[in-house]
Design a protein around this nucleic acid. Structure first.
Length: 544
DNA sequence: CTAGGGTTAG
């Protein structure tokens, strides 16, 4: 049938040039029209392309129509599942393959093993390993390497090493997978040793070692390896930049960013999120604008960082601009972390209407978004609504965590809701059996003392099982001034002089309290003490 | 007869 062969070859040519799903479907129609649905060679090529361009159901539908599919066909469908679908779908396809007499070969296992590795399913992985041994393909480099990767990713370094040592042939990828295994469990001694023994290295091998040190927070060793590395690529730079950003060293992060010859979206993202998370929201926004001016399209990660920066600044105009920018982009705002950031930004910047409508339209409201909303209400002085929302959260059966209690106690404190604050503090300790942190105590002290319960606040501070931070004492001293209480004022100020000998604030507050009672002699004593210790009032935030 | 597989950064 020479005409069929010609048709098959010409469709293969069409497939090589095919770049869109629409075109793929046209070619599919031709395959059916010409009666080539059983052509294994052609269908294999078709499925590979369909995996990349189209959807798995489409690949599967085409596959189903083939009688007695060849190993090549099974393998290409398995690869599609392992890249685009879940662990269970891949493994059940593998099981179906074995049941339907598909002959598994050395091309079958890497996909199945990778599916196991991707979701940390080491038990199933071991079974697949056994199956590979029974098929006699465990000596293959690709199979062996995927197994080293599997055990390494599942933190079973001893097993990974056993497979690695048993391999009769290894290449740079096999060696790198072994380094990944050691680095993954934080064993950088082991990782460095294997790295040192590698007969050849590529950029990936170097980057694995660098990121291993970075993950341990060992920026010194990471930087040393980075400097030694020949041909640093965009990943090497990004790994270092992200490491510095996460350790709070934005100066080094920025320096390497400027040094990098190529900047991709992940690198921009690392810098922007670094600035946002280390409390430099204005810098984050500035870098974002610089990125935009170079025509780099932001992705969801960058937008989340930008929204976090915006929340910190609390600027409504900026928030509105970001919100509409996001809504006009192709980014799906229904993604949980994007939506959470969007609600948080709108709530903190004062657009409670927008925040509320996003919040109420969520399919299921979670703790994070509740906290954003409560904090938004709190910032804008709507304490009673914050309390009501917190109660609604409890009635929905969500269990508050430490952060949630900090948020609600702060809300109570801002709106001077003493009874509610006491209630939540008790709830936290007794119903949820949580140990309050110094932050929680600080909120309570602030709430009680500002509402005039100076003695109770003082007793709470004294009764704390952990050391309070100076902020709590400072809040109490501020309240002593507010309520003109000399007795507690002296007590608290003397504690603060010990806790924070270098801070002028407490001296100033105490002298203000004396001044309110016209005790000018005491005023001058405090001022002199302050001068003796070389402290100056900072102009601008002085005695007002 | 032709073809298919493994490692790194937010």
């Amino acid at each position: 049938m020479p005409s069929v062969r010609v048709a098959s070859a010409s469709i293969a040519t069409l497939l090589k040039a095919c770049k869109t799903q629409f075109r793929l479907e046209q070619i599919h129609a031709q395959i059916i029209h010409k009666g080539l649905e059983q052509d294994h060679f052609l269908i294999t090529q078709f499925i590979c392309l369909s995996n990349a361009l189209s959807s798995l159901p489409y690949s599967t539908a085409v596959f189903r129509r083939v009688n007695n599919p060849s190993s090549h066909l099974w393998n290409s469908l398995l690869k599609g599942h392992c890249e685009r679908s879940s662990f269970s779908a891949t493994v059940s396809l593998f099981i179906r393959m074995k049941r339907e007499d598909g002959a598994a070969d050395e091309y079958t296992y890497p996909s199945v093993v990778k599916a196991c590795a991707g979701e940390g399913r080491v038990r199933e992985g071991r079974a697949v390993h056994g199956s590979a041994v029974r098929c006699g393909v465990d000596g293959n480099v690709f199979v062996g390497t995927s197994l080293v990767d599997l055990y390494g990713k599942c933190r079973e370094v001893v097993c990974a090493r056993k497979v690695f040592d048993g391999m009769c042939e290894r290449n740079v990828v096999s060696w790198t997978a072994m380094v990944v295994g050691y680095a993954g469990v934080g064993d950088m001694v082991g990782a460095s040793k294997v790295f040192g023994e590698m007969p050849e290295r590529n950029a990936v091998s170097w980057n694995v070692v660098i990121s291993g040190f970075v993950r341990l927070g060992d920026l010194g060793n990471a930087r040393r390896v980075f400097e030694e590395m020949p041909g640093k690529d965009v990943v090497s730079f990004t790994t270092m930049i992200d490491g510095y950003a996460k350790s709070g060293d934005m100066a080094s992060a920025r320096f390497l960013f400027e040094q990098a010859p190529v900047k991709d979206i992940v690198m921009w993202s690392a810098l922007i999120s670094g600035y946002a998370q280390n409390g430099f929201p204005n810098q984050a926004v500035k870098i974002f604008l610089e990125m935009s001016s170079r025509n780099v399209e932001p992705d969801e990660f960058i937008m989340v960082s930008l929204m976090s920066a915006c929340s910190q600044v609390g600027c409504l105009e900026l928030a509105e601009w970001v919100d509409s920018y996001l809504s006009n982009s192709s980014i799906d705002i229904r993604q949980p972390h994007v939506l959470a950031a969007l609600i948080d930004m709108n709530a903190k910047c004062g657009n409670m209407e927008r925040a509320t409508s996003l919040f109420e339209n969520m399919p299921k409201r979670d703790l994070i978004s509740y906290c954003s909303m409560i904090q938004g209400l709190s910032i804008h002085g709507r304490g009673n609504q914050a309390v009501a929302l917190f109660n609604r959260m409890l009635s929905e059966g969500l269990a508050p965590d430490e952060v949630a209690f900090t948020v609600i106690l702060t809300a109570c404190s801002r709106s001077e809701l003493v009874e509610e604050g006491r209630h939540f503090f008790e709830l936290m300790r007794h119903k949820y059996s949580m140990v309050p942190t110094p932050d929680h105590y600080a909120c309570m002290v602030d709430l009680l003392s500002r509402s005039g319960w100076l003695e109770e606040a003082y007793e709470l501070l004294q009764s704390m099982p952990v050391e309070p931070h100076a902020g709590a004492w400072g809040a109490l001293l501020g309240a002593c001034k507010l309520h003109c209480n000399v007795e507690f004022g002296e007590l608290v100020a003397n504690r603060l002089f010990v806790l924070e000998p270098k801070s002028a604030g407490s001296y100033v507050l105490l002298s203000d309290i004396y001044a309110a009672f016209h005790r000018w002699l005491d005023v001058s004593v405090v001022r002199n003490k302050m001068q003796e210790r070389g402290l100056k009032k900072i102009p601008g935030i002085s005695s007002i």
